[in-house]
Every structure is written in structure tokens, then in C-alpha cells.
Design a protein around this nucleic acid. Structure first.
Lengths: 153, 153
DNA sequence: GTTTTTGCAAACCATTTGCAGGGTC
DNA sequence: GACCCTGCAAATGGTTTGCAAAAAC
């Protein structure tokens, strides 16, 4: 006798899946699976992380689909691709509106920050350089409060 | 009769080569060649750019050496690796001290900017998030004055 | 029923590495 | 002369792609 195990996706946090619905993208099972895998992550993650998560948990999603779904989520603005200081590419979940992150170098957890004086900064740069700034990449790295406490610093 | 053409490096802008001398690194001909290739560039460039420049100009430098030399220059702080909005990796020449760039999306030229209110920004973020920031990546993209003028905007 | 998405494997591309020979100090 | 650097070609690792089968609308 042979048991076939059907993997059933848990209900993912709405943010990722509703963004699909709202944008008219098809809500397929593999995409839901990727959403679940992302939700089960804490902090930033790489595409390779998701691939191995999927394998380990027996979630039936192909490598290519994970890449394609991450790209899609990035287009929708619900995840963002960031570049770690090491040069690795990683992703973080985020609100479509905000786009700056503080990343903990120890545990990898991220916090979103709002403007935080960016407006003033770009205005100052525009004035002094003659550039007109239209996009930016700002990533801050450091230790979060919890990791600082654990490390006793 | 067969003419063999010996490629002689032009004298590169001091910054790159003196940084080698000063740090005790060997001043080899391939490294000088890479320095020249970089000097002949305007704006940011990729490793692939240098490889094709070298091939086109008949400069005898191996691909691996270009990568190794770029890594070395980056360690010395005379070039910096940046990540373009497209996700491509590129390099820009820079002063060892400053580390923020404004990159023109049209012509690729970069301008270095000093602090520009960053201190205030990180202080504000530290206070509000509990993180202690120890490194950051800040890249601003936009149109430089010249390109704006040409485009009539 | 039409159109989109998936999964696989192969292709691809930038980057790294091992190693023997050559250059620099 | 000792040690470092170079070049080649092969290995690598992440990401993309072509295509037929499967799923979503």
C-alpha cells in the first residue's frame, strides 16, 4: 500500500496573497506555498533559503517557480530585494509604501523605517550637486536591541 | 615580416597606483593596465566593461586578473562596488574617505557626497528602533545637471 | 476553452579557483 | 632567490529560459 501525502498550504498571512488577487494575478497553489514559506521565515531570506525550506518541508514547489514568484512579489512591492553587506542578495517582506530597512547583522530581522529625514537629505544633495534625485537605495545595518542585549553590549 | 605590438600602459592617474604602493602591494603591469582602463572610463562600470575594453584595446590582461584587481582596489577603498537599481553590480572610483554616491541614471557619472545629514538620520533611527547602526549603504540615483539640460527637463 | 503557470533540465552568466609559469621586490 | 601575481581553463553557484504538461480563470 502506498500513501500519497498531499501537502496542503496553511493559510498565509493575507498581505502576500491579497496582493496577488488585487493585481489580477492568478492565485495558484505554488504561489500560495511560496507565500507560506516566506511567512514562516523571520528576518531576511535568500532564494536559496526558500528552496531548501521547500525541500526540507516537502513542499512541492520547483526552484524556477520560487524565483519567478519572488520576482512577482517584488514587482508588487510586497517583498523587496536587498543587498547585504556581504554582497549576497536577500529579500524582506515589506509594506508597498515604505522602502527603507534596518537590518540586524546578527539575527537578520528587519525593521521598516519611514522617511527619517531622507527628504531633507535628498533636498540638500540636490541643491549641492545639481542632480535631481528620483530613486535611492538606503539600507542600514546594525544590531537590534535584542541581539545587543544577548551579546551584552 | 611580423610586427609584434607591445602594449605600453599610459601613466594612470596617481590615485589608483599610489594606493598600491602605499599599501605595500606589488605594482605589476597588469594592475597598472587595469588602473588605466578604469581611468579611461567615465562614470560607473562593470567588470564586464573592463574585460571588453581590454579585449577591444588589445590590452593584455586576463579576466581573472581584472576581477582580482577590482577586489584589491575595493579593499584599498579607491573604488567602491555599488548596486545599480537594475541589480547589476558596478564599480565607481572614489576617495577612500567618503562613501556615498549620487549616480546619474542617464550617463552613469557619479558624484561623491559627504555626510549630508546622514548622522542625524542614523541617530534618529537608532533612537526610534533600538538598533545600533554600524554600517549602511546609501546610493542615490537621478539625473545630473547636464543630462537634465540635454533632455530639456 | 483559452490563457497562464509550472516543473524539469539545460542554458546562461558573472565570478572564483587550482595550478604551473613568469614577474616583482 | 623567495614570494607573489598572472593567465588559462575548468569549476562554481545563482539565476534564467524553452517547452510540454497541468492548472486557473
Amino acid at each position: 500500500m502506498r500513501l500519497s501525502i498531499i501537502w496542503r498550504p496553511m493559510c498565509p498571512t493575507p498581505a502576500l496573497t491579497t496582493s496577488l488577487r488585487r493585481s489580477g494575478e492568478r492565485l495558484t497553489r505554488p504561489r500560495k506555498s511560496v507565500a507560506v514559506l516566506i511567512d514562516q521565515r523571520d528576518g531576511h531570506f535568500t532564494s536559496a533559503d526558500l528552496v531548501s525550506d521547500a525541500r526540507r518541508k516537502g513542499v512541492p514547489v520547483g526552484r524556477a517557480t520560487i524565483f519567478r514568484t519572488l520576482e512577482l512579489f517584488a514587482e508588487l512591492g510586497v517583498v523587496e530585494r536587498i543587498d547585504l553587506p556581504t554582497g549576497e542578495h536577500a529579500y524582506v517582506v515589506c509594506e508597498p509604501a515604505h522602502h527603507h530597512h534596518v537590518v540586524c547583522s546578527s539575527c537578520g530581522r528587519t525593521t521598516e523605517i519611514d522617511d527619517a529625514g531622507l527628504e531633507a537629505m535628498t533636498a540638500s544633495v540636490e541643491e549641492r550637486t545639481g542632480f535631481r534625485i528620483d530613486r535611492h537605495r538606503i539600507e542600514l545595518f546594525g544590531l537590534c536591541a535584542e541581539c545587543r542585549e544577548q551579546d551584552g553590549r
